[in-house]
Amino acid sequence: MKIFVDGKIAGVTDADLKSFYQVQESLKAQGHIVFSPLLLPDDSDLGEKMDICFAFLRASDAIAVETGNYHDKTEVFIDYLTQYNPDAKVISKAM
């Protein structure tokens, strides 16, 4: 399954980012293809990052959402994915 891993990655602690990476690696170890905003270059501007995230979403079968750490784009990403792909799954991940 192709999974977009969503979660706030700006203004979080190193421990939060470590947990985010662990979820990515866990999904990869289960054989999933993982798309993540953590793969984007730090010097990308917001518009570029959003364009790439929406491309990731169009290619995804599911979105893994960090529970308890929604950000202002989470609902937009979920709505976009489920409208683009009505069979898409929303997976809550405790990070």
Rank of each mutant, 00 (worst) to 15 (best):
K8T: 07
I91F: 02
K8D: 02
L81I: 03
F4E: 00
D6N: 15
S36Y: 11
D45L: 06
V23F: 02
K93V: 15
I52M: 10
E48W: 13
D6Y: 13
D87S: 14
L17H: 05
Q30Y: 07
D14K: 14
I63M: 01
S36C: 10
T74Q: 07
Q24V: 04
D72H: 12
I9D: 03
P37H: 02
F54M: 10
V23C: 04
E66M: 12
A59F: 10
N85M: 06
A10V: 05
A15K: 14
A59R: 15
D6R: 04
P86D: 08
F56D: 03
K49E: 06
S44W: 15
D42I: 11
D72T: 13
K2S: 10
T74F: 03
V5E: 00
A29N: 12
L57F: 01
P41T: 13
V65F: 08
F77C: 08
A55G: 05
G47A: 13
A15D: 12
S60C: 04
D72N: 09
I33R: 09
I3H: 06
Q30D: 07
V12T: 05
Y70M: 11
V76M: 14
A15M: 07
N69P: 00
L46S: 10
Y70F: 15
L81M: 04
G7V: 05
K49Y: 05
S60H: 01
L81W: 06
A94N: 15
F35N: 02
D51G: 05
G11L: 06
T13S: 15
L81E: 04
T13V: 05
T82R: 13
F54A: 03
L46V: 11
K2R: 15
Y80C: 01
L46G: 04
L39F: 13
S92E: 15
F4I: 00
A55N: 10
S26G: 11
F4Y: 15
K73N: 10
I52V: 15
Q30E: 14
S19E: 06
H71R: 07
G7T: 09
I91S: 03
V90M: 03
A88E: 01
T13F: 09
Y21C: 09
L17K: 13
G68T: 05
D42M: 12
V23I: 13
S19C: 08
D51Y: 12
E66F: 11
K28L: 12
D45F: 09
D45Q: 08
D79S: 11
V5A: 01
A64K: 03
T67C: 00
D45M: 05
V34I: 07
V65M: 04
F56T: 00
M50W: 12
A10D: 15
D51N: 10
I33H: 10
Q22A: 11
Y80I: 06
T13D: 09
A29R: 13
D16H: 08
P41W: 12
A64H: 02
V65A: 00
V23S: 07
S19V: 01
Q30N: 05
K93I: 10
V5Q: 01
I91H: 01
Y21V: 09
D16M: 09
S92K: 15
D87P: 02
T74G: 05
V90R: 03
L57V: 06
V12C: 02
D42E: 13
D43I: 08
K49S: 07
V34E: 00
V65I: 11
V34Y: 07
S26I: 04
N85C: 08
K8S: 07
G47N: 11
E75L: 15
Q22I: 01
K89D: 08
C53H: 01
